[in-house]
Amino acid sequence: MEREVLEAELVLPTHMKFKKIQMYDKYPKGQARGRHWKHLKQIIQAENYENYPPHLPTYVNIETPPSMHPGKKICDITGFEAPYFDPRTKLRYANTEVFKTIRSLPNDYVQRYLALRNAAVVLR
């Protein structure tokens, strides 16, 4: 290991004197690293929030509901207000110049612009 790396103590030591169980004991090398950690969705599911009394605040029911106002439609390229919608690319656009550019955009760019607002076609 290079000297400057050692000096900066960049690398976390594997043995920590202040720990009761060391990482290498807990997650032995060679075995599949650690275990599968439940993702948030699974955690929420396992939590069985539907069995809770409804007045109790939980991670799920404190979420904000959708907005009461209709969503602002902005041009996907420029961010201007977008009165128009291109049915081919499904992009919103502000004026003719933007329209020209979106029609010349390659498909993957269109999809990336759509993905920005979570509207891309997802192929499964």
Binding site: T64, P65, P66, S67, M68, H69, K72, R117, N118
Partner: peptide, 18 residues
């Protein structure tokens, strides 16, 4: 305006009302 990035929830100002 979280709907700019496709999140269907209210933004900070409306959250106060909620």
């Amino acid at each position: 305006n979280p709907n700019f990035i496709g999140i269907d929830q209210s933004g900070l100002d409306e959250m106060v009302g909620v």
